[in-house]
Simulated assay, not measured.
Amino acid sequence: MDLRIHSDFSKLSLDEMKEIYSSVGWTKHTIEIIKQIFEASNVIALVTVNGRIIGFGRAMTDGVFNAAIYDVIVHPEFQKQGIARQIMEYLLDKLSNISCVHLISTSGNEDFYKKLGLKRIKTGMARYLNPNLASEYLE
């Protein structure tokens, strides 16, 4: 298995990325949305196996004080093999000089991020336009 982690978004198939989002139930990510959010992200981790994309993660940062990590996703066929950990380690390495790195975990994955050194925050706040997400993530 030829597993590679890189950040060259221009050489990847948006169709494969859409399939990965769909494979974990994130069905609102169209090709256009995927292109927009990855072009707006300034730190990207893309995982390929034998040239096929199987996972990714992305972050946005001001380059000094703050960053936020989003969309750490691995296709179900490749989960439980340490790939998400590699994605996170890649992103955190690229953000190693940033004072504060935020991440909102999907429900049930909090322990995974704790093992990587992230901790709950006391003053976290958010607004969700989607009522289902608001009821899941907000107090």
Rank of each mutant, 00 (worst) to 15 (best):
R127I: 15
S96E: 14
S41H: 12
S105C: 11
I121F: 12
R127A: 13
Q79N: 10
F78T: 00
G124M: 03
S96H: 15
V47T: 14
Y70W: 13
E110A: 08
S99K: 15
L116Y: 05
Y90P: 01
T48K: 13
Y70Q: 02
I73V: 12
S41M: 10
V43Q: 11
D111Y: 11
M125Q: 10
N109I: 00
L116E: 02
Q79W: 09
I44S: 02
H75C: 03
L129E: 06
V72R: 05
S96N: 14
K122I: 01
V101R: 01
L95G: 10
V43I: 15
V49Y: 12
K80S: 15
N50W: 01
S99C: 09
T48N: 12
D93G: 15
L133Q: 06
N50C: 03
S107N: 03
I73C: 00
Q86E: 13
E136W: 02
M88H: 07
D62N: 09
I87K: 03
I54H: 03
Q86T: 10
I44H: 06
G82A: 14
Y128M: 02
G63C: 01
G63H: 03
I121L: 14
E110P: 05
S105R: 01
G51H: 11
S107V: 13
Q86C: 10
R52H: 14
Q86F: 04
Q81Y: 15
M88P: 07
I44C: 04
L95T: 06
S41Q: 07
E89M: 13
N109L: 13
L46V: 12
S99D: 08
S107C: 02
L92T: 05
D111A: 14
K114V: 09
L118C: 04
P76H: 06
I44F: 08
E77G: 10
L95I: 08
A68Y: 15
Y137T: 00
R58T: 01
M88C: 14
A59G: 07
V72G: 12
L129V: 05
A45D: 00
V64W: 14
C100E: 11
I98L: 07
G124Q: 02
F65M: 04
D93M: 06
R85F: 07
K80D: 13
E110M: 08
F56S: 06
V47G: 12
Y113R: 03
A84G: 15
G57T: 04
I83H: 14
N132L: 09
Y137F: 15
A68D: 02
V49I: 13
T48M: 04
P76R: 05
N132Q: 11
E89T: 11
Y137Q: 00
M60Y: 11
A67R: 01
A84H: 07
G55Y: 09
K80V: 12
T61H: 06
S41Y: 13
V74S: 03
N66M: 04
L118K: 03
N130W: 08
A45H: 05
M60C: 10
G55F: 08
L118E: 05
N109Q: 09
T106Q: 04
D111R: 12
N109H: 10
E89N: 15
I69R: 07
Y128F: 15
P76W: 02
N50T: 00
D93C: 12
N50F: 03
G82M: 10
H102D: 08
L95Y: 12
G82D: 10
H102C: 02
S107H: 02
E110Y: 07
N66T: 08
N66Y: 13
